[in-house]
């Protein structure tokens, strides 16, 4: 009798019908959307990756024999790309700090917070390639257009991350500082910034990692650096040179990732 009562008590609760229907609709919906997208995304061409295209073979052969004749030049262009990423990220931080503070619910009133959040949404939603093209038109070809593209897009992303970090702070130290007679700016400088600084730095470093990759792609629109050399080599079918450039990029980006992760792991 006791055993029956115990086993009945241990029976897990049944899943609510609403939850079950929600799961079916969610996963079923995802499956239907994927099926409908199969044709437009040309997924049926997947076998072509392995169907022995001449281009793929030629490409593969060249990759086995990379052409490092211009290695010092590639390295100097890679360094230029990293410099673009550094400046793009640094300017983004300048944009993101005020946006992050003014977009935080616990710092700014809704009348300021709402428009600031919309500005961040716009900066985030426009791809850096598009912003880059606008700046190429405005300031001409070269790295500065790339720097500005990275700065604006990353400014929006970091602004959002910064404001979320501010919203999750412990309000105790802020109230402690306020009680000593601090003005609003002093509350932020003494109570808020010290709490979020490690996380903000970590986010900025992480974005620097991704900007190092993004800066390469920006070469496509004439923003200079290793990316531009890469696309020029691709367009002239010089796959051995493409292979050498790709290796330089992989090594540089990997080193940046390792360095950045090492710093970030010490911060948080």
């Amino acid at each position: 009798m006791t055993d029956i009562a115990t086993s009945a008590a241990l029976k897990p609760p049944a899943r609510p019908l609403g939850q079950w229907i929600f799961d079916v609709l969610l996963w079923g919906g995802i499956a239907i959307v994927l099926a409908l997208s199969f044709g437009p995304a040309e997924i049926e061409k997947f076998p072509r990756l392995f169907s022995g295209s001449d281009n793929m073979r030629e490409f593969g052969r060249a990759f086995i024999n990379p052409d490092f004749d211009l290695l010092p030049f590639f390295i100097s262009q890679m360094w230029l790309t990293i410099q673009m990423a550094m400046w793009g990220t640094a300017l983004a931080v300048f944009i993101a700090v005020p946006l992050g503070l003014l977009g935080a619910r616990n710092i700014a009133p809704p009348a300021i917070q709402w428009p600031v959040r919309r500005v961040m949404d716009i900066l985030r939603s426009v791809p850096d390639l598009v912003i880059g093209m606008v700046f190429v038109v405005a300031v001409g070809l070269g790295p500065f257009a790339g720097v500005m593209a990275l700065a604006l897009n990353t400014g929006g992303v970091l602004g959002k991350l910064f404001s979320e970090a501010v919203e999750s702070i412990d309000k105790g130290p802020v109230e402690g500082v306020r009680a000593t007679g601090a003005h609003k700016l002093q509350e932020i400088a003494w109570g808020v910034v010290p709490q979020v600084a490690p996380l903000w730095t970590s986010y900025a470093l992480y974005r620097f990692e991704s900007n190092s990759r993004a800066a390469t792609i920006l070469g496509l629109i004439g923003a200079g650096g290793i990316g531009q050399i890469l696309f020029d080599s691709l367009n002239s079918f010089n796959y051995s040179r493409v292979a050498a450039i790709a290796l330089v990029i992989v090594v540089a980006v990997t080193l940046i990732d390792i360095l950045s992760q090492a710093i970030r792991s010490r911060l948080i």
């Binding site: 009680a179 007679g181 002093q186 003494w190």
Partner: peptide
């Protein structure tokens, strides 16, 4: 007005990144 009032909070609300000396000096620096 707050500068004329000293508050000892139940949970202290000290600034963890500052030394004890700097914490004690906060109202003066403010």
């Amino acid at each position: 007005l707050r500068r004329r009032i000293g508050v000892v909070f139940q949970e202290f609300r000290l600034l963890d990144h500052m030394s004890a000396f700097d914490n004690a000096a906060v109202p003066l620096r403010i």
